[in-house]
Design a protein around this nucleic acid. Structure first.
Lengths: 146, 146
DNA sequence: CTGATTTGCGTGCGCTGTGCACGCTATCCT
DNA sequence: AGGATAGCGTGCACAGCGCACGCAAATCAG
């Protein structure tokens, strides 16, 4: 079973990726100088992907507790990156949506990350890089991450 | 600049990998039924790679504070997975080393992870899987993770 | 139509992991 | 020898996290 050996190789690489410090360092670099920290980033990014929605929906998206998203949203609201708005269809619900500045910050964050990654792929043969990107996407999609 | 688009694609995949919940869930599955939790696992695994060494060295390896490793090591020591031993060469230093059970647990953990990954690669064309493993290793090595 | 139940949201509270500062012991340098 | 340095472990404060509670609005039962 040579796949098992591949599993070991991938496991080593994943070990580094999953470190807290790795995530903290990466997010720290990305958010440097921007009015958002490593904790607000995932919420902001998820909101950009999902569009206007409730904190509970965002919680499922980010993989955190509902109340945590609420607190982070409040923080981001104070920073002026998102705003709350009563749901016109359901007056007990509160919609979270990006402000213009929030949209700009998300765009900048995504640009920085994409650039960072593209730079590290700079010396790769184009076909190899493309294959890796596709492979990673596939691996994450149906990998051991339910 | 098409690399930039690749960067965006990879960024999306990384976003999921870097989630706290992803790591917690994966480590939870791996350590299920074993006398080690998601916090002890990195320390145990690093100790297996590095061999007998001090907590400070392990801290650099894992990317945590020295005192945190000390506490986790104490926890693992209570569980019987590692033991402390005064460094014969330097009597103020304390060596951390795996017990037999600790070695067995690490082996089981690595086996589980490798199996998990290998399973998710089951349907992949062999060459594609191999290319992905190599790509991931390379990407992690000289990627944006200093 | 009215009262009870459910749903969604925000906040108070306790828990836990983390890092810093401190004290102690052993080693190294002068 | 004696002061400076290095290595460990622990007390402490801080912050993120999830649970439980209370309130407002909507839905359901009768």
């Amino acid at each position: 079973m040579e796949n098992h050996q591949l599993g070991t190789e991938i496991a080593d690489a994943l070990g580094l990726l999953l470190r807290r410090s790795t995530r903290a360092r990466l997010y720290g670099r990305l958010t440097d100088g921007l009015p958002v920290d490593e904790f607000g980033y995932p919420v902001l990014s998820a909101l950009a992907r999902a569009g206007a929605c409730s904190a509970a929906e965002l919680a499922g998206e980010v993989g955190l507790d509902r109340t945590v998203v609420t607190r982070r949203a409040t923080h981001l609201e104070t920073a002026g990156l998102l705003r709350r708005e009563p749901d016109p269809a359901d007056r007990r619900a509160t919609l979270l949506l990006l402000t213009d500045e929030g949209t700009a910050v998300v765009a900048e964050l995504r640009r920085r990350l994409a650039t960072l990654i593209a730079d590290s792929l700079h010396d790769w043969p184009p076909t190899e890089a493309q294959a890796f990107a596709a492979g990673l996407t596939r691996f994450v999609a149906d990998g051991p991450f339910s």
